[in-house]
C-alpha cells in the first residue's frame, strides 16, 4: 500500500493552493491547460511584474511569510516547483 510521507504532505500543502492560485489568476480558471511543475511562468507569458506582486501578496497572506524584495527573482518564483521549493525553504528557516 502506497502512502504519502510527512514531507510529501507538507509539499502538497504548499503546491495545492499555489497551483490553484496560478490557474485562477494567470490561466483565468482554464484547468485544461497543462501546468507542469517545471513550466516557466515567464517564458510562457503567464506572469510579469504585476502578476508577481499578486503572487507575492498571496504567498505572504496564505503562508504567513515575509517575502523580501531581493527574493522576488525568477530563481524563486518562475515555476510551480521553484515557488514550492522557495516556500518550503522559507518555512524551514
Amino acid at each position: 500500500m502506497m502512502g504519502h510521507t510527512g514531507t510529501e504532505t507538507m509539499i502538497d500543502d504548499i503546491r495545492t493552493p499555489i497551483r490553484a492560485f496560478i490557474v485562477e489568476n494567470f490561466l483565468f480558471g482554464d484547468e485544461s491547460q497543462p501546468l507542469p511543475d517545471d513550466m516557466s511562468l515567464i517564458d510562457n507569458d503567464l506572469v510579469d511584474s504585476t502578476g508577481i506582486l499578486e503572487l507575492v501578496g498571496f504567498i505572504e497572506k496564505e503562508f504567513g511569510l515575509k517575502v523580501e524584495d531581493r527574493e522576488i527573482v525568477p530563481a524563486n518564483l518562475d515555476s510551480l516547483a521553484r515557488i514550492v521549493a522557495y516556500i518550503d525553504g522559507k518555512r524551514a528557516h
Binding site: I42, V47, D48, S49, T50, I52, L53, V56, D69, R70, I72, V73, P74, L77
Partner: peptide, 21 residues
C-alpha cells in the same frame, strides 16, 4: 522606468516595493 523586462521581468515590482517600504 525599468527596461529589459525579458531578462528580469520582476525588476519593476522590486523597485516599487523598495520605494514604498
Amino acid at each position: 522606468m525599468v527596461e529589459a523586462r525579458e531578462d528580469d521581468p520582476f525588476a519593476g515590482a522590486r523597485l516599487l516595493r523598495d520605494v514604498l517600504a
